[in-house]
Simulated assay, not measured.
Amino acid sequence: MADITRRLGWRHLRGAPTAHVRHHRSGTLVHDGPGLSFWYRALTAALSEVPVDDRELAMTFHARTSDFQDVTVQATVTYRVGDPALAAERLDFSIDPDTGAWRGAPLEQLGTLLTETAQQHALDVLARTPLATALVDGVAAVRERVSAGLAAEPRLPATGIEVVAVRVVALRPEPEVERALRTPARELIQQDADRATYERRAVAVERERAIAENELASRIELARREERLVDQQGTNARRKAEEQAAADAVRAEAEAARTVRLADAEAARSVRLAKAEAEGAREVGEARAQAQAAWLRVHGDVDVATLHALTGTRLAENLPRIDSVTVSPDVLTGLLVRLGHGNGDGRGHGQADGAGDGHGDRA
């Protein structure tokens, strides 16, 4: 849109390089070209602004294939105004001299013209194409047909419109039909996936079998080696036992020989000791016999009184300890009587001996 400013009843227009401005005053073309800047009076000026840049027109429309299936076509047409003067004459590109806004909707008219023209050619080519073919080759076929149709449309050059490019973005069926069409492909993909899964499982099973066989072979080899180890250990144990038994036999023989030697030595020592003891006992017996004989000879030579005195002495030596002695009057009387008579007769002497013995006992 042009930039318009006001100054004391005058207007100043400043256009863009992509906008072609035409200024008529009293039916006479005064200014004509893109990117103009000039003063004018609003009451006498007739202005029009035609965009000359490339514009994108997106369109979406429905079509029906030869097997009566609805499809949606999404396309984009790039166009530009090649002859601004012709376009300004055929379409209303006039602008308000006070605001610079278009009085009409020229771009909408161009969009409707291009959309209907492209839709007409797309419907024509899809109406003779089945759905499966349209989904596979329909995009290229529609693009070529729409491009050729727009290039051959006589109204576009007469309006000053040039078609730069045509792009068909997508061609899609209805959602239910699209899902139905996807089902076989999905099934095939699923079958391929299942096949790959089965193959992977088969390979895994084969590998597991190989691993199990290797483990079994390893266990068998380990068992065989353990068997050889057990045999070797048994042989070693048996050899060790034999060597130990031989060593024990040698040790036992040596111990028996040593025991025999010790027994012989002990027997000889015992014999010598017994002989010595017997000799000593004989000598002691002889000495005792001699002493007893001498003792008897000595006692045979002494008198009876001396023997009685010795007997009392030996008896006193062997008696227990006497703490106190009680002398009765009868004993004391008899003792005094004996002392008074002396040793006059043998009876008195015997009594004195008896009293002496009693005294000795009490002593």
Rank of each mutant, 00 (worst) to 15 (best):
R11Q: 14
A16E: 12
A19T: 10
H20M: 05
V21F: 03
R25G: 01
G27Q: 00
H31V: 04
R41Q: 10
V50W: 02
D54Q: 00
Q69F: 05
A75M: 05
L86Y: 02
L91H: 06
A101N: 07
W102Y: 14
R103G: 14
L110A: 11
T112F: 09
L114H: 07
T115F: 11
L126Q: 05
A127F: 07
G138D: 06
V142I: 12
E144G: 11
A152N: 15
R155E: 10
L156K: 10
A158N: 11
E162S: 10
V168Y: 02
V169E: 11
A185V: 12
R195F: 06
R201E: 08
V203T: 10
R224W: 00
R224E: 07
E227A: 09
E227W: 03
Q233D: 03
R239F: 00
K240W: 00
E242I: 07
A247P: 03
V250P: 01
R272I: 14
E277Y: 01
R288S: 02
Q290F: 09
W295Y: 10
D303N: 07
D303T: 02
N318Y: 01
R321G: 05
I322L: 08
S324A: 01
V325K: 01
G340L: 11
G342P: 11
N343T: 14
G350D: 12
G350T: 12
Q351H: 08
A352L: 15
D357G: 14
G358L: 10
